[in-house]
């Protein structure tokens, strides 16, 4: 390796070190320092301005007894679980369909992926319009003669998160399809030949041979989709604004409102620290699976 050839003294490669100063500052000050700062200040009683009066876990106790936070967590759990399962299923289905040597493959792929190019704001607004009970899909189907047809999730506190889910799936499943397709194309043709010779039906080959072989792609996709789910914010703002009432609140919105609207900084810090903890729970097992094995072997 090159770095063993070149002796590394402080003045060696000085230009390279100077050039990397912005990266060092970003890594140390922003990603490490800022995160630490927020975690530390979540143990204070800061309200309008950050204060350094230590209150222990008081903010966390308050957070977990706040109804709005509990609703946020519940929503994120429902949305997250369904989004993970459905986007993986839908993405895989699309990828498998595109992988059948079909015509217009690029055209179909363009159609399935374009929502990923537009913002969550656009996504939220157009689905708000489509799901509008007075003008949208409900009215269109009713005008066909199905007068009792109901599709009005956005104004029903029990259903609103599923309305958001429809929009989230529309936006994100193309990405999953793309990753899955790359995974499918990486599978050796011989696997298919062998299973055909043995007379195994295609669906069984997918389920018991191909999908297990795609484990690395599946893990990456899982981590990516999860990271996106935890950040869920813009879509809610555009589509429901957290309503009706607080029925579609999510943690990222809770943090924003605590910090910038209700000036309850420490609650925002505590809530964002909880988000960080959630991410750590996802990342550590993944990092262990991905990199842990290699170091030992």
């Amino acid at each position: 390796m090159a770095h063993t050839v070149r002796p590394s003294r402080l003045l060696k490669n000085l230009n390279a070190k100077i050039a990397a100063v912005p990266m060092m500052l970003t890594a140390v000050v922003v990603f490490f320092g800022f995160t630490l700062w927020t975690v530390i200040f979540s143990f204070t009683n800061s309200r309008m301005l950050p204060r350094s009066e230590w209150v222990g876990f008081e903010q966390y106790e308050r957070l977990w007894s706040t109804r709005r936070w509990l609703v946020s967590i519940e929503n994120l759990a429902i949305y997250g679980f369904l989004m993970l399962v459905l986007s993986l299923v839908l993405g895989f289905l699309l990828a498998a369909l595109l992988d059948q040597r079909i015509r217009f493959e690029d055209g179909f792929r363009t159609i399935f992926l374009y929502p990923y190019a537009v913002s969550f704001i656009v996504t939220g607004l157009v689905w708000q319009w489509l799901l509008d009970p007075e003008y949208g899909l409900q009215k269109a189907v009713r005008s066909l003669g199905f007068t009792s047809f109901t599709l009005d999730p956005l104004y029903d506190p029990n259903l609103v998160i599923y309305g958001v889910l429809i929009a989230g799936l529309w936006h994100g499943s193309g990405l999953v399809m793309c990753l899955m397709l790359a995974g499918l194309r990486g599978i050796d043709e011989d696997v298919w030949k062998a299973s055909r010779v043995d007379g195994i039906p295609a669906w069984k080959t997918y389920l018991f041979i191909v999908i297990p072989m795609m484990r690395p792609v599946l893990v990456t996709t899982l981590v990516l989709v999860t990271a996106g789910i935890i950040k869920l914010y813009d879509l809610i703002i555009a589509q429901t604004g957290g309503g009706p009432g607080i029925a579609s609140e999510v943690p990222a919105k809770f943090v924003f409102d605590a910090m910038f609207v209700s000036q309850n900084l420490a609650q925002g810090f505590a809530a964002s620290t909880m988000m960080l903890v959630a991410v750590i729970f996802v990342i550590i097992p993944w990092a262990y699976l991905e990199f842990g094995g290699k170091k030992n072997g």
């Binding site: 990603f31 995160t35 935890i230 910090m259 925002g268 809530a271 964002s272 988000m275 991410v279």
Partner: peptide
């Protein structure tokens, strides 16, 4: 890291 942690 969620941006929310570093925003303030």
């Amino acid at each position: 890291i969620p941006y929310q942690v570093m925003i303030y």
